[in-house]
Structures are given as structure tokens and as C-alpha cells.
């Protein structure tokens, strides 16, 4: 299923923060997880993911650290910060209002009361 990209970009940060809220991950892992969780709806491109992660790190939403993978390659893991958790909460609230409003207008079923 193809979804208009502009609808997604704002939400991607939220989705990534949500993933990291559960556990620390490296970039590739996030793409895979997102794909799995969304049943192949969200296929995030690496070219989008990394600049986004780096921006989030500059904003202080995530921290990164190096860890050695079993093949002695260094992997960069990301972990969510306190500020990141706050941002996730804010974005979630924002999204609920947004989704509810859209549903109101187009006449779908509103799931956010």
C-alpha cells in the first residue's frame, strides 16, 4: 500500500522515538522493526533515517554510543533520552488531536476521544 510521503515525515520522528522507548537500536534494526510492526506499510529509506537520527541527536532526543558487533565491526546504537521521552509524549498528543480532527472532517471513525 502506498501512502503519501508528506503525511509520514512528521510522524517518523515519533515512530522512531517509540521504537527506542522499548530498547536501544542501531539504524538498520530500526528500519526492520518499523517494517515489521507496520506490516510493510512503512518502508523507511536509510537516506531518510540517518539524517533524521542525527537531527534528533542534535536536539537531544537521543544519545548514541558505539558497541562492537560480533564481527568486530563497530555499531552505532541509539538510546532515547528524557527529553526524547517528553518529545514522544508531546508528539503523541499532537497526533491524536490531528487524527481525530481529520476523522471528524472526513467522517471516519474517531478513535481518540
Amino acid at each position: 500500500m502506498a501512502i503519501d510521503k508528506s503525511l509520514l515525515t512528521g510522524g517518523t520522528t515519533m515512530l522512531l522515538l517509540k521504537l527506542l522507548e522499548q530498547e536501544d537500536m542501531y539504524g538498520y534494526q530500526m528500519i526492520e522493526e518499523l517494517k515489521k510492526k507496520s506490516k510493510n506499510v512503512f518502508e523507511l529509506k536509510a537516506g531518510t533515517l540517518y539524517p533524521l537520527l542525527h537531527t534528533m541527536e542534535k536536539k537531544g532526543f537521543v544519545n548514541s554510543y558505539d558497541e562492537e558487533a560480533n564481527n568486530s565491526r563497530i555499531r552505532k546504537y541509539y538510546s532515547i533520552t528524557k527529553a526524547g521521552k517528553q518529545a514522544l509524549q508531546d508528539k503523541k498528543d499532537e497526533w491524536q488531536i490531528y487524527a481525530a480532527t481529520i476523522n471528524d472532517i472526513i467522517g471516519g471513525v474517531s478513535f481518540a476521544y
Binding site: Y26, G27, Y28, A46, Y50, R73, I74, K76
Partner: peptide, 13 residues
């Protein structure tokens, strides 16, 4: 730092 991460990603993919 940036390059290393991208390289790793390509390898994983």
C-alpha cells in the same frame, strides 16, 4: 563518523 555508520548500514542491508 557519518561514513562509518552508512557503510555499516549498507553491509547489513
Amino acid at each position: 563518523v557519518v561514513i562509518e555508520e552508512v557503510e555499516n548500514h549498507i553491509a547489513d542491508q
